[in-house]
Design a protein around this nucleic acid. Sequence first.
DNA 1: TCGATACTTTAGATTATATCTAATTTGAAA
DNA 2: TTTCAAATTAGATATAATCTAAAGTATCGA
Lengths: 145, 145
Amino acid sequence: MDAEAIKRSLESSGLRCTPQRYAVMAFLTGQSRHPTAAEIFEAVNRVDPRSSRATIYNNLRDLVEAGLVREVAAEGRAARFDAKGTRHHHFICDRCGKVEDVDWYDVSGPAPGYLGKRTLRECELIFRGLCAKCSSRRVPPRSSS
Amino acid sequence: MDAEAIKRSLESSGLRCTPQRYAVMAFLTGQSRHPTAAEIFEAVNRVDPRSSRATIYNNLRDLVEAGLVREVAAEGRAARFDAKGTRHHHFICDRCGKVEDVDWYDVSGPAPGYLGKRTLRECELIFRGLCAKCSSRRVPPRSSS
DNA sequence: TCGATACTTTAGATTATATCTAATTTGAAA
DNA sequence: TTTCAAATTAGATATAATCTAAAGTATCGA
Ligand SMILES: [Mn+2]
Ligand SMILES: [Mn+2]
Ligand SMILES: [Zn+2]
Ligand SMILES: [Zn+2]
């Protein structure tokens, strides 16, 4: 996603393309990891323009509301964020907690009526297990052997 | 799940069945909601035995480690907990954030090789949309009309 | 161009959530 | 009983997120 595309996506969501907001969005689109607010804060403040902590949080809130970014559902202390580029699922490692992207495939939704009066918008899959790195190790990290 | 069953499940996980630990487990098994640590704290302290905040957190940690309780993957400030009774999926409301149980059905897992070198343990399905209550309302809550 | 106005950013204070510490208490086994 | 690891506790501390009030900035119409 190039600079112009980011600018357009912000403006078509009714958000001004301020330098600080752009920086958050640009950083997120360039990441396949799932950074926390603190990590985003650090990253955008390594280059101009600098942003205050409140601005990082304000912009993340605005971007999530606008549907350009999602807050990833995962356990753990700090919220993690993800630019909504191409649809994908997530793999969460039982051991190291890393959240990795997995190519999207359409999930066989529930049978009609299964969800009662609820209105379904989407089905998201979360895979759990060991990531490639953790799979290749024999011994759990906490083991003293 | 009756008292004896809870006691057995704790002990077969190598955990002492202390009054405080039992109280947390008993409360969680009786809930279809997904309470936060603060809600559990409040609930168990309405009856004896009382537990300190640290004990609630200690026991939740122990129960999650033992596999008797899971921390629910959902957005939002405080972690939510769920006794692992019968398997089920979750429906998360876009609007009010409520996490509701949905009967389990087996998810068509990814094709072999899809996940590369990762080791898959389970597929969890998260449905998103509007819960029954929010579906029946016309106007979004923030609208000023 | 000018002023009005709404949007945005900011530092620091505040609140909310979770963990740590060090001193007891408890309970099962010897 | 005595012993000792496990568990509990109050309060301190750490971490994450939000709030506040003041100042800065873009946009619009006159
Ligand atoms: Mn992702
Ligand atoms: Mn549940
Ligand atoms: Zn891993
Ligand atoms: Zn709802």
